[in-house]
Design a protein around this nucleic acid. Structure first.
Length: 226
DNA sequence: CCAGACGTTGTT
DNA sequence: GTCTGG
DNA sequence: CCAGACGTTGTT
DNA sequence: GTCTGG
């Protein structure tokens, strides 16, 4: 699955790769390099607004619009690709609210003995990854609002298999438009994209357990481990 | 019909 | 063991 | 995902 | 809102 990732490409690189316009930060604020993005935090997403791809900041942990308790999002950080079309919590988002979640790489943990050993997976050409995402809008009884999201998962490919049996769905660049197409009926084609990545898509490095602690941040998260 | 859940992962 | 916070 | 808390009363 | 279980 995918419960932690990094976004270390520059804003310029991301804008070029995703063609999604300005990143929604206050004027003068730079996109921070992130080495340890965890559930419940804001993440950068690309979704269609007024017919074109736009960056948005969404909270990681999908809260369905009908949820009474927004704490439900704590359990909704991933959505199984095999069942997103039928699960009540994801069905609406899968039809109408698909998005891309840019990542420079993602972490998976292997259970080795008592410990948890992290590995980092990134694109084999150093380009950004586009994880398949779903988002929702939630309006609380007191008028508070939240925009939240989940990362879609699928079976592990050969690269991931020794570490973990699930991985995030990665959308190839030439399929961005297909994944984001919300015209009527297009969602039935989105299902074709919910497959494991080709074996050569990713490179793996074993990294220090420094990244295990969600409060740790910075390049030390990617320090290689023996 | 109404009431209550609505999820994933990993582990047993 | 299970929940919360990051 | 992992790490760390997990409780109450009363007092400051 | 929609599905499942009783």
């Amino acid at each position: 699955m995918c419960g932690r990732f990094a976004l270390t490409h520059s804003a310029e690189d991301l804008a070029r790769w995703f063609g999604a316009g300005e990143i929604p930060l206050a004027p003068g604020l730079a996109l921070p390099l992130r080495y340890n993005i965890a559930p419940s935090q804001p993440l950068l997403a690309v979704r269609v607004e007024h017919g074109s791809p736009r960056f948005a900041l969404l909270r990681w942990g999908l809260v369905p619009s009908w949820a009474k308790d927004p704490a439900m999002g704590q359990h909704m950080i991933n959505a199984r690709g095999e069942t997103v079309a039928v699960k009540p919590a994801f069905k609406n988002a899968y039809r109408h609210h698909r998005c891309l979640i840019p990542a420079s790489g993602f972490y998976e943990w292997a259970h080795e003995g008592k410990g948890r050993q992290p590995y980092y997976f990134s694109g084999n050409r150093g380009t950004p990854l586009a994880m398949a995402g779903l988002w929702e809008h939630w309006l609380g009884p007191d008028g508070s609002e939240m925009e939240t999201c989940a990362i879609v998962t699928t079976q592990a490919n050969k690269t991931l298999k020794p570490i973990h049996d699930r991985m995030p769905v990665l959308i190839p660049r030439e399929r961005f438009a297909a994944w984001l197409d919300h015209s009527p009926g297009a969602w039935t084609h989105a299902a074709e994209l919910l497959v494991p990545s080709p074996e050569d898509a990713l490179v793996k490095i074993k990294v220090s357990t420094y990244v295990n602690h969600p409060a740790h941040e910075g390049p030390a998260c990617l320090a290689p481990a023996k």
